[in-house]
Write a protein that binds this DNA or RNA. Structure first.
Lengths: 211, 211
DNA sequence: TTTTATCTACTGGTTTTCATGTATTTTTCT
DNA sequence: AGAAAAATACATGAAAACCAGTAGATAAAA
């Protein structure tokens, strides 16, 4: 019997990457590229009409976060397999991706061969990680001691304010709460990130795109 | 008379991008891809033997900064045209690239057509900017008030140490100079970045990839 | 060779952060 | 309704950062 073609979509705002992927996959007989999208929005609309087997999904998109999008996709269309394409090699982000239902995680510095391997693995319904990602996941969180923690909404609100250079007192005024409270939040933030002081806190937060 | 083929090299640590570029350029009769490299180091070695007309150069490389590499290339091989490929849309970074002798600047979200246009422009010896980059350069620096300043080597050394959470005293010990000196450097750094405190300093520095 | 930039170092005083600990109220989830 | 998580608030003392100004020593550039 003839196996059906796998339908694949690409969501990435870098045309060069998209073009590259397309060209790479064009001659694979079992894969049918049914669309490529620059924004999460446009892809979600597309998904309403057609079923897609595999999505190659970038994390940094112009309109929304790729991880959130992944979650959304899996909620509304659980049959769609999501493979994250990303530059982020932080263990915590990979963990997040998998928790959000991703079937795979590829660093953008993966080779073409690795890409194909992962696609095939994902097609078989297994979790597909590129070699480097496997390495990162394999070594217990010694190098990256604390992945990025889950923040409360207040913390998410305060963190960028700290990063803007506001002092505890400033923030207190701005949010109409006691500066002492802000201090507590700042303390908790540092603890969650395992940072010795604001400098380190802001570095980690900025690297994780939280500012 | 037959025009000579343009020799082109790619320096980028993302195989997918490299593969994509290769496939895109493979069928262009006037372009000869003579090599692709993952590190600045390996490319510089290669350059010693062969002359290259155009280099497509990524800014973020594993071993060194693409902008610095650009400068190095232009110093040792002025005949080589460098086109920067980057995700950074900050005006200041584009300025830096051009100051360091780049012949062009392409955002990675440029289309394949734009890529070709820029290549052809660069071949003709003109400065090639992608549409979006032109737009960024066109509007005066209102949106990005203070582009990133030029740092001295000592400052470049100290900044990441601050970002790691080290205190003034720690850094002083590490570098065998007085903590008072470190304090002066920190102050100067904040002034250069226009930051009110370390928090803001580290945010800006991290966003510019200087930590 | 003067100028300019950089690195170095200090004084003295103010503000902010950091550490540690406690504790009440409000949401949110089960 | 009850438990858990989050947001709120305070106290106290030590440590670090921040402000403002000055200034000598080099080293590179005009």
């Amino acid at each position: 019997m003839l196996p059906e073609k796998i339908t694949l979509a690409i969501v990435d705002d870098h045309p060069i990457v998209v073009e590259g992927l397309k060209l790479l996959l064009l001659d694979k007989p079992h894969i049918d590229i049914i669309g490529s999208f620059h924004t999460g929005e446009s892809f979600m609309k597309f998904l309403n009409g057609i079923s897609v087997d595999i999505v190659l999904l970038d994390i940094t998109l112009p309109d929304k976060n790729g991880l959130d999008l992944c979650k959304e996709i899996k909620q509304k269309h659980p049959e769609t397999n999501v493979i994250i394409l990303s530059n982020h090699s932080e263990r915590s982000i990979i963990m997040q991706a998998l928790q959000h239902g991703a079937s795979g995680y590829l660093l953008k510095n993966a080779s073409a061969t690795e890409l194909m391997d992962c696609l095939n693995t994902a097609i078989r319904g297994q979790v597909a990680l590129s070699e480097e990602v496997k390495g990162i996941m394999a070594r217990p969180s010694t190098i990256m001691p604390q992945g990025f923690p889950t923040l409360t909404s207040r913390e998410k609100e305060i963190l960028p304010l700290i990063a803007t250079g506001l002092t505890t007192a400033d923030i207190g005024n701005k949010l109409f709460i006691s500066p002492l409270t802000i201090e507590t939040h700042r303390r908790n933030l540092m603890q969650k990130f395992g940072a010795k002081n604001v400098a380190e806190l802001i570095k980690l937060a900025t690297l994780h795109g939280l500012t």
